[in-house]
């Protein structure tokens, strides 16, 4: 049976990478990262080129999503009503 490249090289799944990339972008956009976090992010990115891509893609996705601000509050139902 044909194995994927990821399996052949026993690599971290792209899904897990996307999860981590989204978290880093959310953090970075919410507040300045601490020096420890900065270095942790750099170490994380340096270990796999796919992480660099996932991080860039997650950031781009977040930038695109943020355009929704132009829609205004009325577009959405009240998030406070649970």
């Amino acid at each position: 049976m044909k194995k994927t490249l990821a399996q052949m090289e026993d690599r971290e799944s792209s899904t897990r990478i996307d999860d981590a990339a989204a978290l880093w972008v959310a953090r970075m956009e919410a507040r300045p990262l601490s020096p420890e976090e900065e270095s942790e992010l750099d170490t994380w990115l340096a270990a796999d080129i796919r992480r660099q891509g996932a991080f860039a893609r997650a950031w781009a996705a977040s930038i695109h999503m943020a355009k929704a601000q132009a829609l205004g509050r009325d577009f959405f139902t009240d998030p406070d009503q649970n």
Partner: peptide
């Protein structure tokens, strides 16, 4: 295959 597609997409963005 599917998994490779995600890998390639990530690397392309990189």
């Amino acid at each position: 295959v599917e998994l490779e597609i995600d890998d390639i997409v990530q690397e392309a963005y990189a």
